[in-house]
Amino acid sequence: MRFMRSYLWYLIGLVALLVLPQVVSSPYIMFLLNMAIIFVILALGLNVVFGMTGMLNLASLAFSGIGAYTSGILAVKLGLPFPLALIGAVVVAMLFGLMVGLPTIRIGGHYLAFMTIAFGEIMRLIFQNWTPVTGGALGLSGIKYASIGPLVLKTHWSYYHLSLTLLVIMVYVANRIRVSKLGRAFEAVRGSEVAARALGINTYYHKVLAFVLGAAFGGVAGTLYAFLMRYVDPGTFTFEESARVLTMVMVGGRGSIPGVIIGAFLLTFLPEWLRFLKDYYMAMYGLGILLIVLFLPGGVISLWDKVRSRFAAGRRAPAAQTSAGKR
């Protein structure tokens, strides 16, 4: 029963996502749905690093870039199929995560945020300038349609089922991390590093591990992106896009997996919904982000908590207080 209840909302969401392609007729909307899933995976990765462990990583897109280029190169130059390219991309992204994490995490704190900005810029410039390997400013082209066995995924609709499968796996992984001993250790580190150490948690090890796990999510997202576009453009992996992933986590509700999923979907589709504002839509998008951070610091998911606690308060006793407090 407990299992049922904790997974009920995920199941409802999954059913909705399975039904959606049947009613969507525009390839552009299908493309956006695929992009939303990629952003959800990225945001889930950032949620492990930042939401759970409390380390601000402003280079999410650098890791997805590493994933995209690795899988793209494996597919174009070695002719590997999607599943092998995916594994390669995840491994390489994790190696980069380890390489960046080991020296920088020891320094820690706000400095880490600065270091990740630097790392993101460095990777962007490598993508753009290492022409023999990455294709330079022209990008990496010639990626074939993703195929699994005899199945070739040519349309955004068929590709969507691949994205959705990976999304389900990644949401499951994120949930397992969260409820495991590992996740509790991550959250202890976020709460207070000194206290976590006093409880016998090796904080350095856990922080590096969180960083590497976060990088793995980036590798998955990057591979999905490379095979969706079938072209990797160095201009994609910018600081601004990394900041967008952070915004998704904050707007959805830091630390909450359903919240992060909602945040990523919301911020992918919000600009489209605001198109009726014509020239003003990006400005209003910025204003919307500001308003959510100011007036809903717990993210969109905290609305749900508020509704639920009010409902519970009405049913039981008037003394019950709202549980959605400020962190």
Binding site: A243, L246, T247, M250, Y280, Y285, G286, L287, I289, V293
Partner: peptide, 17 residues
């Protein structure tokens, strides 16, 4: 401090556009 990062990013988007 992350809240201020996101709020200033929002303002930045607003002003630039």
């Amino acid at each position: 401090f992350e809240f201020v990062i996101v709020s200033t990013l929002g303002v930045s988007l607003f002003l630039r556009n």
